[in-house]
Amino acid sequence: MSGATCDEGNIILKISNLDYYYGSFRALKSVCMDIVKNTIVALIGPSGCGKSTLLKTFDRMSDLVAGSRVEGEILYKGRNIFDPATDITLLRKQIGMVFQHPNPFALSLADNIKFGPRVHGERNAEKLDWLVESSLRAVGLWDHLKDRLDKKATELQADEQQRLCIARLIAVEPEVLLMDEPCSTLDPIATLNIEELMRELKKKYTIVTVTHNMQQAARVSDYSGFMLMGELIEYSKTSSIFSNPRDKRTDDYISGHYG
């Protein structure tokens, strides 16, 4: 279960012996993985295997679950995020999350983008407007929507909403983007568009995505992790995990025996 070997200096997230409990249920079992900067990591596995749970520990959204408990450590750029001294709002600024269902706020497009910067104290109107433009450009929505910035975000189409949610994250200048099945509610064309966007975004950001869709993992990711019953069974370069899985369970899953 060793992680893919790589240059230590490029590791942005280092997960060591991570256990996560809902009450007495052990949802994650001694997970170890290294996530390399400017790559896309896909977490795959059957429903309930703990891949979303693992993702949520990276920005400590997992704290919100009542009765949950974490053991082990996650080093983000060398510092343990579970350290009591961690500033959680700052952590979530650096490690942002895109959810399965697009969740733009019932505000205008512009106010959705400005939300994050405002939360973190940005008051300068020019800077905020610039962030709206640059974030919307980054997700390819600017040309299409620049004349309708005061339109309510909840009136957009689903994939535009998801793009907007990504733009909303980018506006706080994060380093890591966590995406929890970002395409599961989108049609195939919109899915390809979001994948294209992910490839574009990895030049600046590190992306960890959870997906049910193995083709998607194969298409878009550089590294893949296969999870089963809370364990990270195998984690390596996507090309090798799909062509030459080392563990029989991985092989069974990617060849469609269960899941």
């Binding site: 959204m61 919100l64 952590l91 979530r92 269902h101």
Partner: peptide, 11 residues
């Protein structure tokens, strides 16, 4: 999801 979305942005 609104609350989650906001918290995940560091609010």
């Amino acid at each position: 999801s609104y609350r989650e979305g906001a918290l995940a942005l560091g609010a």
